[in-house]
Design a protein around this nucleic acid. Structure first.
Lengths: 340, 340
DNA sequence: GGATGCAACTATAGCGATTTAGTAAAACGG
DNA sequence: CCGTTTTACTAAATCGCTATAGTTGCATCC
């Protein structure tokens, strides 16, 4: 593929009859050229559709104008979770007006994720990164600090000392608002069909459910891989028992919909004999019949907030103070009711 | 944010006691250094975690190692369509092993999209782009050709002369497989709740439906903005008439689910009194009750194919021949049946 | 044994921007 | 009116890497 010659600052300089340095001054609005010359240069640059080479700028030490997002999920599960699309859309909305792009890669392990950060840093390819799914003793944080790569973490945990700026998602509060609601309705046996146990939010939610024990609520956790198939299996097992739970809570909406279908197939009326709820909302959760009671989080807003926070963080000399993300709301719909 | 000093090729050269040029030869596997020296240099580079600066490489004329995807959708609707997430996931799967990143931006008009391509080209920021939603007399194609920016188009139209390489999605065949199926079941009055009329696939599907007229099928098209609310409204209107259609086809799965709910609310049994189908599949479409008959496209595979094709195109000296995307399949589920 | 060739390097220019140091001319001040 | 400051520039170095033109030392060959 033969490349068209690009218009460079030298071309503009030649056309304007000045030195490249003068053109740089003019284009970046800094002193060193007369107003008259500046206008002339700007006009010529405009006419020839000059645009700066981000490669050259990056080489010179300037920012790349790109933020990075390394997602540690299999390509298959990415599509299943509405969370990502919403988050990305939100990030984009905050970046679009600033002419900043988002670069995204899928990684298959946390080691690969760390390697990606190193590569991005060495190449000066991104100015900062968004990190999700924080863990205890997260190996990514020391690396990010060593690289001095600005980062914003989204997670259900306050950032510890030396960790990047974090937007804290108060997952225990979230868990309370849903489990307490079910408890208040009168449910005394609640099953929680969760994701993998290593996720912080899974652990937090599990703790909250266990905490309801003292109020006479029997909680039960089933770990899955987030797939609808695993949710169906779990639901089928739960409903085949003599002692059925009266409420089942799923970690996300797709799993809840899968669970709902199993209940219908097995002739268990929802919400009459069984309440169903989800920790994740989506458009579809409100459209199925019965519509599903969910924790509604403004994921789009969260993405926008994260991106804005990251841009601040990139400009700031120090690690900024943590923030608290907008508190998710409980959206009560048709799938939950007082147990029989 | 103070930056850590990066390890450069010069550092490695100093440590190995050779010139930077020799290091470059060694690292890129080209002749000019002895095997012994090459090994020594590679070891040192490894030890010091040297990684090439893509900015410097790009400046030197090499590729950026990034492909671009400008999406002309509002941030809000991005999340609603599973298509994008699946496509992006597929693209990523094809890029990941090649260490190539995808850069994505949202644009709000085709002009802005063109401007983005110009910017990307001037900055040598991306090596190629994926283009979706082709139009007649598409203004993007001449620009891409002028810039000699490699591109792959995904669309329901053969590429015309001078257009970028295209993966052709045979939408009229797709439309046939669904509408013909409904016709064969015995439906004689079919409503098609479509997206905006300017999309080529909307037009093609509309034409196919109209073509069924000669076989005694009365078709009807309702244009919407792809939103579930619009789908609900359309469905409510259709079912309030004296002469109801016996089948309603939606452009995507979320709309179909919204329509399904309206039918249930209005007491119209699906599929007994009304068949419902969708031109877009998703996990959820198979999980709702009744599950929805859909055209199932391997969007993930399409994304992977598009990315692979684009990489080929980037390496190729000329515009490659068009390809035909994998043919979507009709997935018959519970929501369609013989009309009463 | 001197010309030739080859291997294994080094030196250097260049990519496109920024940035600092340097310079000439104009403006200013006492 | 001469010294100083300011203005408006130019020249040159720099970023990290690649590529091309040299430059050695050593083996080869008639």
């Amino acid at each position: 593929m033969n490349k068209t010659k690009r218009v460079t600052i030298t071309d503009i300089a030649r056309l304007a009859g000045v030195s490249p340095g003068a053109v740089s001054f003019a284009l970046n609005g800094r002193p060193g050229v007369s107003e008259q010359t500046r206008k002339r240069i700007l006009t010529i640059a405009e006419e020839h559709q000059w645009l700066p080479s981000s490669a050259a700028r990056a080489l010179g030490g300037a920012g790349a104008g790109v933020i990075g997002f390394a997602v540690n999920r299999s390509a298959g599960t990415l599509g299943a979770e509405a969370f990502f699309t919403d988050l990305i859309a939100g990030v984009q909305s905050a970046l679009a007006e600033k002419r900043i792009a988002m670069q995204m890669v899928l990684v298959s392990s946390i080691e690969e994720e760390v390697a990606t950060y190193r590569r991005w840093h060495s190449a000066n390819q991104v100015d900062g990164v968004i990190v999700i799914d924080p863990r205890d003793d997260d190996p990514r944080f020391p690396v990010l600090r060593d690289l001095a790569l600005p980062a914003v973490v989204l997670g259900s945990h306050a950032s510890e000392e030396g960790h990047p700026a974090t937007i804290w998602l108060d997952d225990s509060q979230v868990a309370h608002s849903l489990f307490d609601y079910l408890g208040a309705l009168g449910h005394r046996s609640i099953a929680y069909v969760a994701g993998p146990a290593e996720f912080q939010h899974t652990r937090l939610r599990t703790e909250v459910l266990a905490g309801l024990g003292e109020r006479g609520v029997r909680g039960e956790v089933i770990a899955t891989d987030f797939s609808p198939a695993a949710a169906s299996t779990a639901m089928r097992r739960l409903l085949s028992r003599l002692e059925r739970p009266t409420a089942v809570v799923f970690d996300n909406d797709v799993m809840a919909i899968a669970g709902l279908r199993v209940a219908q197939e097995m002739g268990v009326p929802v919400p009459k004999d069984l309440s169903v709820a989800s920790f994740d909302d989506s458009v579809v959760a409100g459209l199925v019949h019965p519509s599903i009671t969910c924790i509604t989080r403004d994921t789009f807003g969260l993405g926008a907030e994260a991106a804005a926070f990251l841009l601040e963080q990139i400009d700031a000399p120090e690690v900024l103070a943590d923030r608290i993300g907008a508190l998710p709301q409980l959206t009560v719909r048709e799938s939950t009711a007082v147990p029989r």
